[in-house]
C-alpha cells in the first residue's frame, strides 16, 4: 500500500526537484566564483517567462521544435538578464545583495509588464508540454524501475547530466580550480594570472543560464502556465545551495530532500496516509533545517570565503 503511494508520488517529487536542483547548481557557479546571487528567484522567473512566450508563439507552427527552442530561450534570457547583476556587482562593485534584490523585483515586474502587453491578463498558458515517458530497459528493473525510470521527463535527465558535468568541471579541471579560487582568494588567483573579473562574469552568467533553464523546465513540465512568479522556488534553491554546503553532492541531496518534502506536503491534501505529519511542518522544514545547518556549521562553514566581496585590483 505504502509502496504504491511512493511510486505514485515519486515522479511528482522528481519533476519538482529538477528545476530546484538546476537553479541551486547555478547558484553554486556564481557563489563559487565569489558573487553572492540572491537573484536566483528572479532569474528563474525570466526563464519561466521566456520559455512560455517562445513555446506559445511556436507551438502552433512547429510543435516538435517549440519546446526545445523554448528551453533554449529560457537559458539565453536567464544568462542575458544575469548580466545586470554581473555588471553591478563585478564591474561597479555594487552591494551584491541589493543588486540581487533588484534582479528579483525587476524580473517579477518586467515579465508581468510584458506579459500583460502580450496577453492582456498577464497569464501565458501553453497547450504543449513535455510528455512523460519511461526509460527503455531501465524501467523494467524491479523496485527501482517503477520509482525512478517510469513517468519521467527527459529534462530531468538533462538536469542530472548537467549536474554530473558540473561536478567534473568544478573539481577535475583547471577551469574549475580557477573559478573556485576566485571565490576563495581572488587576490591569490589574480597574482597567479587568473582573470578574476572574467571568471566572475562567467560564474554569474552560468548561474543565470541554469536558473533560466530551471524556469523553462518548470513551464515545459508541470507548470503549463506563466503567471509572473515561481512562488519562492528560487529561494528554496538558495536554501538547497546553503544546506548542501556549496558542494554538488550536497546540493543534489538537499534539492531532492526539499523537493520530496514539498511534494508530500502538497499530496497530503489528497492522500490521507501522509496526514501524519502536518503539512505546515513539511513546508517550513527546508528553511528551518537550513537555519539549523548554518548554526551547526557556523564554525566550519564551507561558504566561499570571498563571496560577497568586491574585487578591485585598481584600488590596491
Amino acid at each position: 500500500m505504502m509502496f504504491d503511494i511512493i511510486i505514485k508520488i515519486f515522479p511528482y517529487a522528481i519533476a519538482f526537484t529538477a528545476p530546484l536542483l538546476i537553479t541551486a547548481l547555478g547558484g553554486l557557479y556564481s557563489e563559487r566564483s565569489g558573487v553572492v546571487n540572491i537573484g536566483l528567484e528572479g532569474l528563474m522567473v525570466i526563464g519561466f517567462f521566456a520559455g512560455a512566450v517562445t513555446i506559445k508563439s511556436l507551438e502552433a507552427t512547429v510543435p516538435q521544435l517549440s519546446i526545445l527552442v523554448g528551453i533554449l530561450a529560457g537559458i539565453i534570457a536567464g544568462a542575458l538578464f544575469s548580466l545586470l547583476h554581473a555588471f553591478a556587482s563585478i564591474s561597479l562593485n555594487a552591494d551584491q545583495v541589493i543588486s540581487g534584490t533588484a534582479i528579483n523585483m525587476l524580473a517579477g515586474a518586467l515579465t508581468l509588464f510584458f506579459a500583460r502587453t502580450i496577453t492582456g491578463s498577464g497569464n501565458i498558458s501553453i497547450t504543449l508540454g513535455i510528455v512523460r515517458s519511461a526509460v527503455p530497459v531501465l524501467s523494467k528493473i524491479p523496485l527501482i524501475g517503477p520509482i525512478f525510470f517510469t513517468n519521467t521527463y527527459y529534462t530531468t535527465w538533462i538536469v542530472l547530466a548537467i549536474w554530473g558535468f558540473s561536478w567534473f568541471l568544478l573539481y577535475k579541471t583547471s577551469f574549475g580550480l580557477r573559478l573556485r579560487a576566485c571565490g576563495e582568494h581572488p587576490n591569490a588567483a589574480a597574482s597567479a594570472g587568473v582573470n578574476v573579473v572574467r571568471m566572475r562574469y562567467i560564474g554569474v552568467m552560468v548561474s543565470g543560464a541554469l536558473a533560466g533553464l530551471g524556469g523553462a523546465v518548470m513551464i515545459a513540465t508541470y507548470a503549463g502556465e506563466f503567471n509572473g512568479t515561481v512562488a519562492g522556488l528560487g529561494f528554496l534553491a538558495l536554501a538547497a545551495l546553503i544546506f548542501g554546503q556549496w558542494k554538488p553532492l550536497g546540493i543534489l541531496g538537499a534539492a531532492f530532500f526539499f523537493g520530496f518534502a514539498r511534494t508530500v506536503a502538497d499530496a497530503s491534501q489528497v492522500i490521507p496516509q501522509f496526514n501524519v505529519v502536518p503539512p505546515i511542518i513539511l513546508k517550513i522544514f527546508p528553511y528551518v533545517v537550513t537555519l539549523i545547518a548554518l548554526v551547526l556549521f557556523s564554525k566550519t562553514s564551507k561558504a566561499p570565503k570571498a563571496a560577497g566581496q568586491p574585487f578591485d585590483l585598481r584600488g590596491k
Binding site: L84, A88, L92, N93, A94, D95, I98, S99, T101, A102, I103, M105, L106, G108, A109, L110, L112, F113, R116, T117, G122
Partner: peptide, 21 residues
C-alpha cells in the same frame, strides 16, 4: 500595464545599488 510602477521602483533600487557610479 500597472506593473510599470513596480518596474520603475525595481530599476531605482538597481541604480541605488550602483550609485557609486
Amino acid at each position: 500595464p500597472p506593473q510599470i510602477s513596480d518596474s520603475i521602483i525595481a530599476i531605482i533600487i538597481y541604480f541605488t545599488a550602483t550609485s557609486l557610479f
